[in-house]
Amino acid sequence: MRIGCTGFDGAFCPGGGGLGAEQMIFAAHFLLEDLSNPVPGTPTGALAKGGVHRGTESVTFTATDQGSGVYRGVIEIDGVPVHREIIDANGGKCADAYPADPDPFQFVNRVPCKLSANGTVRFDTTTVPDGPHEIRISVEDAAGNRATVFGAEPVTIQNGPVRSAPAALASPAPPPDALTPPSPIGRPLAPPSAARTITLTATAPGAKDDMVRSAYGRRVPISGTIRNADGNPMSGARIDVTTLLRVPRAKARTQRPITTDASGAFRYLLPAGPSRTITFAHGAGPAAKTSIDVRVRARLSLRLSRRKLRNGSAARYSGTLAGPNAGRKLVDVQVIVGRQWRPVCSARTTARGRYACRYRFKRTFRTTRYTFRARVRRQETLPYEPSQSVRRRLTVLP
């Protein structure tokens, strides 16, 4: 491979120009940015339905993408990803190039996955405890952008034996005057409403499809209502609250319960923190349960060791990724060239979320002012959404 002489901004080369060097490159890492979400079609299959689920079930859907291609189907139970499956391997191209690395979005090809793919995702429900849950099925592209295919929908997982209630002892027939009186239209009155017919709803400002995005450090106000089978508000009803961190193998935390007012309404102020799924429940049964998925953008800082330096000198880029689970996360420092952000250096954070990397300027032959930012991408064990730091500027003299 033959290379010439240039800088970040396409600066000129000194002397007579032409080829300045000849170099053989055996390997290189490039960071490609893709901000578009995949677009899923209508799903089919037993898994894309409410009700009771048993054994291994599947969902089939088609999805398209405009950037890196359709990568994986993701199944979330109660807000936590529990299963991921590649939609179409694309001849082996649509697969993580470094499986031993914690970053699953590393590929050999620029567009590793198909821009339109149809596939089936299978899920073994026996890996989830029996009982009421909430399921969401998403499609993910090769850059980590997601779109919802199905849900979030309340379901019941039932793989164990169903316990039947003991038969009641026979009793003599009631006298005629004890029979259920007829209704005005001549039909028996309906039996009392069961707990499963209770309707519980919750929402937050700006929420869409039970999901709301929030900036780091902000509290999220959530409001909701609960109504009985007749549609009447239930005043004084107890609402149980649990929160679940959006990382694998997280455990739900029970919060202080709240009580509805006279109009059957309740309010809950979620404290500032990482991305979480907040679940509100009344009694037992999936119909008396609802969740809000709160996605919080990461807070990332960037500091430059110098504001001005000469060509041939090095700059140090450092900062902090705030919040829990911030250790061992990948942070990229980028420079803007024209209208595109290009990589400068990358580093992994320490246990306290701190990072640092260096870059030596060697090809700036006229006074140039560069603009930098730090960016954290979506990572499986990071309970925050992708974000970037404020921009910093550095002047390089020839």
Rank of each mutant, 00 (worst) to 15 (best):
P274R: 02
R276L: 15
R276E: 15
T277A: 12
T279M: 09
A281N: 07
G283M: 10
G283Y: 08
G283C: 09
A284S: 14
A284T: 14
P286D: 06
T290M: 10
S291P: 03
S291K: 10
I292E: 11
D293A: 07
R295C: 10
V296I: 14
R297P: 00
R297M: 12
A298L: 05
R299Y: 05
S301T: 15
S301I: 05
S301D: 15
R303Q: 12
R303T: 12
R303N: 13
L304H: 03
S305N: 09
S305W: 08
R307S: 15
K308F: 07
N311W: 04
S313L: 05
A314V: 06
A314C: 10
A314Q: 13
R316N: 09
S318K: 02
A322S: 14
G323Y: 01
P324V: 05
P324S: 03
P324A: 04
A326R: 07
A326D: 12
G327F: 07
G327T: 06
R328W: 09
R328Y: 13
R328G: 12
Q340R: 13
R342A: 13
R342Q: 14
V344K: 03
C345M: 08
T350K: 02
A351T: 12
R354I: 05
R354P: 03
Y355W: 08
C357D: 07
Y359M: 04
F361I: 04
K362Q: 15
K362R: 15
T364F: 00
T364V: 15
T364R: 01
T367E: 14
T367I: 09
T368L: 05
T368G: 02
Y370A: 04
R373M: 01
R373W: 00
R373N: 01
R375F: 09
R375T: 08
V376S: 02
V376E: 00
V376R: 00
R377P: 00
R378A: 12
R378S: 10
E380C: 01
T381C: 01
L382D: 03
P383T: 06
P383E: 04
Y384E: 06
Y384S: 04
Y384H: 08
